[in-house]
Every structure is written in structure tokens, then in C-alpha cells.
């Protein structure tokens, strides 16, 4: 029987320790999606952080799992919305999710553009609905609100209606799914073009149009993203992770350092410490 705790959607205030219980409950915490709505900042933040992470009142951030404990440590007032991929159910919603969270995969955190109050309104309605007693309508209502939030967000970033209905979008999303699956084992672009059934040239064009980046950059960023997850969330050794990513250890450490400014070991220690608050 479905209920509030297992529908795959949660929202709660940042000051609520329930978050940590949730994380202990979730076996696959890294694959959840996080939307953070910052409302107030209690203690002053260092200028480096504000510059780097766009932390300001009323900002809506998309945050990757590994950074969530860091945000909790900043003593912010705000609302966190967490959901799983399976909560989104339909293909349309999955596609939206991929588009909106695309850059979050690369950078760990992205501030989304809000043009008017509508997006805030969606998040606020989600919070109210989630706090109402559970009934059979609740998942559907929450999903509609989430879908509206994603639609509003994409409409500002990807406003070109014609582009959204073109086959380029379809290719780009197929590539995105394949990269999710194969980034660690297949690093060559022709492999992906072949899987989708298009030429390399078309693939490059599609990704340029939809995500404004190249296939090479996406693959590289996805490797960083996936290894970063493993470093923080798994108990595998760094050597093991390097092998899984198809690198030898010394190259992997160099690669990781270039991307994050930290060695894998230091990175693991920093974020593991945050998790055990």
C-alpha cells in the first residue's frame, strides 16, 4: 500500500533534522533529485561561498546529493524538496527532469532563473499539499505541481517551441540517457552516435542546440559526476573507483583533482564528515 513515506517525494524545512533520517532510510540516496528554496540566511556567509554558490534569499537551487549536507551546515532557513525518478512516472516528466537537472549534474549546484512568482508558488503549494493528510490524490497533485515547476523552469531556459518539438531534443535526451548508463565504460563519441543511430555530426549539432555544449564535455562531466558520487556515497576504495571508471589510479587522482580542486581522498573525508553531523 502506498503512503506518504514511500511515494518517492518528500519536502521539509532546512532546519528539520528529519532530513538525516530520510537519508539513512534511502539506500540509493545519491540518485534522488533535490530542489532547495532558500528563504533566509541566518549567519553571514563568506564572500567566496556566496560568489560560488549563489546563496541569497528567495533563490531556487538545484543541488546534487553530495552537496546537501554542506547546505545543512550553513544554517539556512528554507525548504528542501526531494524526489525520486520513479515519482515522475511519465516519459514527458522524465524528459523535463533531464532538461532541468542537466547542468546540475555537471556543476553540483545550479541557480534557476525565476521570471515571476509562479515557480515559488508551485513550491509553496507542494509544501502545503505535502503537509496535508495523505490520500490517494496526494501523489497526483504533487506530481502535477512538480511538473508545472519543471515546465515553468524549462520555458525560460528552453523557450524555443520549435526546437522543443524537433528531433534534436529527442537525440539529445537519448544521448543523455546513454551517458548516464555508459559514461564509465564507453568514452568514445562514435559509440553513442551508433547507439542512437545518427551521425556524429548530427549528435554534435543536437547537443549544441539543446544543451549548448559538446558530447565530449558531457561525457567528461558525467564521469566526474559519477565518480564524485562513488567517492562520497560508496565504501569502495579509491583504487577500485579508478578501475571502475577505466583509469589507472594516478591518472584518476589527477583527473579528479583538476575537476574538484581536491584529491579523491580529501574529498571523501570532507563530505563524509558532513554526513555524520
Amino acid at each position: 500500500m502506498e503512503n506518504k513515506n514511500n511515494m518517492g517525494f518528500w519536502t521539509f524545512p532546512m532546519e528539520n533534522p528529519e532530513y538525516y533520517h530520510l537519508h539513512r532510510m534511502q539506500e540509493n540516496q545519491a540518485s534522488l533529485f533535490y530542489i532547495l528554496w532558500i528563504q533566509e540566511i541566518h549567519s553571514p556567509l563568506s564572500p567566496e561561498i556566496t560568489e560560488l554558490l549563489h546563496i541569497r534569499p528567495d533563490a531556487i537551487l538545484l543541488v546534487d546529493a553530495y552537496l546537501i549536507p554542506f547546505f545543512f551546515s550553513l544554517n539556512l532557513k528554507g525548504q528542501l524538496i526531494v524526489f525520486s525518478e520513479s515519482f515522475c512516472r511519465t516519459k514527458e516528466n522524465m524528459d523535463l527532469l533531464k532538461l532541468v537537472f542537466f547542468h546540475c549534474h555537471d556543476e553540483g549546484v545550479v541557480e534557476i532563473d525565476t521570471l515571476n512568482e509562479s515557480q515559488h508558488e508551485c513550491l509553496h503549494l507542494m509544501e502545503m499539499e505535502y503537509n496535508a493528510p495523505y490520500d490517494s490524490f496526494q501523489p497526483a497533485i504533487l506530481l502535477n505541481l512538480l511538473s508545472n515547476f519543471l515546465l515553468l523552469t524549462t520555458s525560460y531556459t528552453y523557450y524555443d517551441e520549435q526546437l522543443m518539438q524537433s528531433h534534436f531534443l529527442d537525440y539529445a535526451l537519448q544521448f543523455e540517457n546513454l551517458v548516464d548508463k555508459y559514461a564509465l565504460t564507453e568514452k568514445k563519441i562514435p559509440f553513442y552516435a551508433f547507439q542512437i543511430g545518427i551521425t556524429e555530426k548530427t549528435l554534435v549539432k543536437s547537443l549544441q542546440l539543446i544543451f549548448n555544449t559538446s558530447p565530449k564535455a558531457i561525457i567528461k562531466n558525467r564521469i566526474i559526476f559519477l565518480t564524485r558520487r562513488m567517492v562520497v556515497f560508496s565504501e569502495k576504495s579509491i583504487t577500485q573507483i579508478a578501475h571502475e571508471a577505466g583509469f589507472d589510479v594516478s591518472y584518476f587522482v589527477k583527473f579528479f583533482f583538476q575537476a574538484t580542486g581536491m584529491s579523491p581522498k580529501a574529498f571523501r573525508e570532507k563530505y563524509a564528515a558532513l554526513f555524520n553531523v
Binding site: 514527458e92 505541481l145 511538473s147 508545472n148 515546465l151 520555458s155 517551441e161 522543443m164 518539438q165
Partner: peptide, 15 residues
């Protein structure tokens, strides 16, 4: 005339 706005309307009506 915009598909995404129609989707938003549809979700809102359903809710």
C-alpha cells in the same frame, strides 16, 4: 499556442 503553457493549464485543472 504554446504547448508547455497548455500542459501547465492541464496540470492545474487536474489539481
Amino acid at each position: 499556442s504554446k504547448d508547455h503553457e497548455l500542459s501547465i493549464l492541464r496540470n492545474n485543472l487536474h489539481n
